[in-house]
Amino acid sequence: MRPETEGQLAELVRDAAAPLSIIGGGTRLWPGEGQGERLDMTGLAGVTLYEPEALTLVVRAGTALEDVRQVLAAEGQMLAFEPWGRQGSTIGGVAAANASGPRRVQAGAARDALIGVRFVNGQGDVVRNGGRVMKNVTGYDLVKLMAGSRGQLGALTEVSLRTAPIPPVAATLALADLDAAAAIPALASALGGPFDVSGAAWLPGHGALIRLEGLAASVKARVADLTARLSVFGTVSEGDPDAWSLLRPAALSHETWRIVCRPGEAATLLAHLPAPSSLDWGGALIHVDLPVDCFPELPPFSGHARRISGAEPLVVPAPDPITARLERDVKSRLDPRGIFAGAA
């Protein structure tokens, strides 16, 4: 099914008798997703409104992420949260996945840039929330609820986003000798000072990576100050500016795990894991490839680990019973018939 208008989509959902799987580009489905009949969102495409001087973009959910990038770049702007995607990834998929890249430490996640949504709920009703202005506390913030909801609450038809200017200059610093665990205190030191860091990551073969962006003189001054500060952790050199695009688990192994933790917990977790494929957000995000069904016993930590490839969905630790009950209730109230089965 590939509706071309919101009205058609609403009708489809109203008439649906069995679960549907909402698919944008289908470029990053999680285990367990994509089971029902496919509801292809790419028919709902195109920019509705773009006001660069108001930093506002309103776009239909099935629009290709690449198209959005081009429209913004033509005006010297970007999506500050740096979403990742492949040929075909859609902006609706980005919003529904809360897909957020390295700049999250500075500019926030997709959910922070998302200022409005339109979606069709499980009963086929069109719901609007938020709008096109960046400050808005009118009624409940269902925009945040929809961000990252992975198609479980409704099908996004249109999203409004706050855009940002592309910084004129970027510099990458590397501490090439540091392993993942040793990188964490260096990243914390950079993020803990007045350097306006816009990326703090670790990659095998690159070591610790730190990015600074902004006006030319400012970047130059911060590079000098930060280099001095970080020299206690090892040799600071110029890093590969292309490394930032390698931070994603591009080719998923049999089992890729995504772990979110406090940076201060990361070193302990890493001690229980094989070498990670990347660290991001100053150590708060760990990606690691594991053999099938080999997730190790981890000491208690304040975040969670999710298997993002593999046969079955799995989250460790399982959500507490009250959170699980609230999530179930919210889902069943927005989608009483369970039309948007989604992932577990």
């Binding site: 959910r111 269902l142 609820l145 961000a147 989250v315 959170t323």
Partner: peptide, 19 residues
């Protein structure tokens, strides 16, 4: 009593903190 959110403000499921 329930804890919502987590590191980076992210829990493992729906963004209930956000609402």
């Amino acid at each position: 009593v329930v804890e919502l959110g987590g590191p980076m403000g992210e829990g493992s499921g729906l963004d209930l903190l956000g609402v």
